[in-house]
């Protein structure tokens, strides 16, 4: 192990969390990142642009109801000043995780493809669900040549699932009204074939079906990567499942992946 890497391991990771009027998971994410994962955490106010991109190892756009979901969920937040900077940050390779409303904001800002519709049930869905990691990432294992031979190119390096086995099932809570993912047919096919779908809703055993789809999302999509795999939108809330005491610590796998990725990149 090089000296450089040692230094990196000793250095605290810096995370930013955006705050919009109506964000309500910002403090949950703050708690998880600071107290559970021991990171340096600071907030990014929606009215401010920022340009000190090097000060952030990654940024989380938390859940909530930014701007009261007026016009469309995430629509107004996506046009805020802080999002202008986040787009630049992401275009430069910065890691951005959008959770729930954060996912909607990423879609509205064009960092992710597609759009969210109202849940098919018309209800606010608030419960634990299962999602399956279909990104097949194995950043920590260098002997993944078998996967490569299989011919699919899902085998992308990415910060969000690099410590999660392919096809692993996570138990995470959802809490949303507009999580019904939509994209046009050909775009949907492209997203799958290019490995941009991160997670699909499934049952406890990993079976993907309409029964395990909580909101009507096309192809049960619950998590999606941006074009360069440095941005991810995730409908369930990993921050609410990052300690055993909360009923599941599967969410920690996502944050641990990000931390591992940053330290080893």
């Amino acid at each position: 192990m090089s000296i450089g890497l040692n230094l990196m391991e000793n250095k605290k990771i810096n995370a930013g969390i955006t705050v919009f009027p109506g964000s309500n998971c910002d403090m949950d994410v703050y708690y998880a990142l600071k107290d559970v994962f021991n990171l340096n955490v600071s907030f990014l106010w929606h009215k401010d642009e920022f340009h000190n991109f090097k000060n952030y190892d990654f940024i989380v756009i938390p859940g909530g109801f930014s701007y009261g979901d007026y016009l469309r969920a995430g629509a107004l937040a996506a046009r805020s000043r802080v999002m202008k900077s986040i787009k630049e940050y992401a275009d430069g390779g910065g890691i951005v995780l959008g959770i729930c409303n954060g996912f909607q904001i990423l879609l509205e800002s064009g960092l992710l493809k597609g759009a969210m519709l109202t849940n098919k049930s018309l209800k606010f869905e608030c419960r634990d669900v299962y999602i399956k990691n279909i990104s097949g990432n194995n950043f920590n294992k260098n002997n993944n040549s078998n996967n490569n031979k299989s011919g699919n190119n899902n085998n992308r390096e990415n910060p969000f699932t690099c410590l999660i086995e392919k096809d692993a099932v996570l138990k995470l809570p959802i809490a949303h009204h507009d999580g019904n993912y939509f994209a046009e047919n050909n775009e949907l096919e492209d997203l799958f074939s290019s490995g941009h779908v991160a997670f699909q809703y499934c049952n406890e055993d990993g079976a993907v079906s309409d029964d395990s789809n909580p909101n009507g999302s096309l192809k049960n999509i619950g998590g999606l990567f941006g074009e360069n795999f440095n941005v991810m939108g995730l409908m369930p809330h990993p921050e609410r499942a990052s300690e055993k005491i909360l009923g599941s610590d599967d969410g920690a796998k996502i944050f641990n992946s990000i931390i591992y990725y940053i330290k080893n990149k």
Partner: peptide, 13 residues
């Protein structure tokens, strides 16, 4: 208005 090919749960309700 939502495109014709897009499901409108509100309209359905």
């Amino acid at each position: 208005i939502l495109k014709d090919e897009v499901l409108d749960p509100q309209g359905k309700a």
